[in-house]
């Protein structure tokens, strides 16, 4: 764009020395401070245009570009840093959540363990109770059975004793005349 500007301007600037030269035509005037000099004007213009192109292309361009590249790199770095920070924050939050979860888990495990232990204790107690009860029941049944046996034994013993006593009684009563008679009657039938 500035190149266009310059090409346009060249035409106008060319007019300036023209005006200056119009006066200078003819004999060489004695130079003073304000003497115009068409040649020098021409050279100034050439030098300016040449400098403009050379500097734009080889100095201002690369320098501006370098600065822009650096600015971009800086912006990129800042952006990257921001992203990294965000990622780190996210990661940190994640880790914290994970730690929290782990702690909850641990708590749960402890609670569960406690509950399990509690349950185990209860069930063991129950079992013990039951076993005790069983033992008791069995003992009771055994005792009952033994008692029945003992009662039967006692009864048998008592029957024996009673029979023995009865035998004694009977044996004692055998002299009785009635009994003699009975036996004699019995013996009489046999014959």
């Amino acid at each position: 764009m500035p190149f266009q500007t310059l090409t346009r301007s060249a035409f106008f600037v060319a007019l300036a020395p023209a005006l200056a030269l119009a006066q200078e035509h003819g004999a060489e005037p004695k130079p003073g401070l304000l003497t115009s000099d068409g040649g020098l004007m021409f050279w100034s213009l050439i030098v300016f245009i040449a400098l403009f192109f050379i500097l734009s292309k080889f100095a201002f361009g690369p320098i501006t570009q370098a600065v822009r590249a650096r600015e971009d790199a800086l912006t990129q770095a800042i952006e990257d840093a921001r992203k990294d920070r965000e990622a780190a924050a996210k990661l940190l939050a994640d880790h914290q959540a994970r730690i929290e979860a782990a702690r909850d888990e641990a708590q749960k495990v402890i609670v569960e363990g406690r509950a399990t232990a509690e349950a185990m204790k209860a069930s063991m107690l129950d079992d013990t109770h039951k076993q005790q009860q069983d033992l008791l029941d069995r003992a009771r049944r055994d005792i009952d059975a033994e008692r029945v046996v003992a009662i039967a034994e006692l009864r048998r013993e008592a029957v024996g004793l009673a029979i023995a006593a009865a035998g004694r009684v009977i044996e004692h009563n055998l002299d009785d005349a009635q009994n003699r008679k009975l036996v004699e009657q019995y013996l009489a039938t046999i014959q």
Binding site: D37, G38, G39, F42, V47, L51, I54, L55, F60
Partner: peptide
């Protein structure tokens, strides 16, 4: 009529432009 003969100031102008271009191009 354009007298393009190199005068003292033309030489100085060219010289300063050359130095300036050199310095800035090196920097570029």
């Amino acid at each position: 009529t354009l007298d393009l003969s190199p005068t003292r100031h033309v030489v100085m102008l060219l010289l300063s432009a050359a130095i300036g271009a050199l310095v800035l191009v090196v920097a570029g």
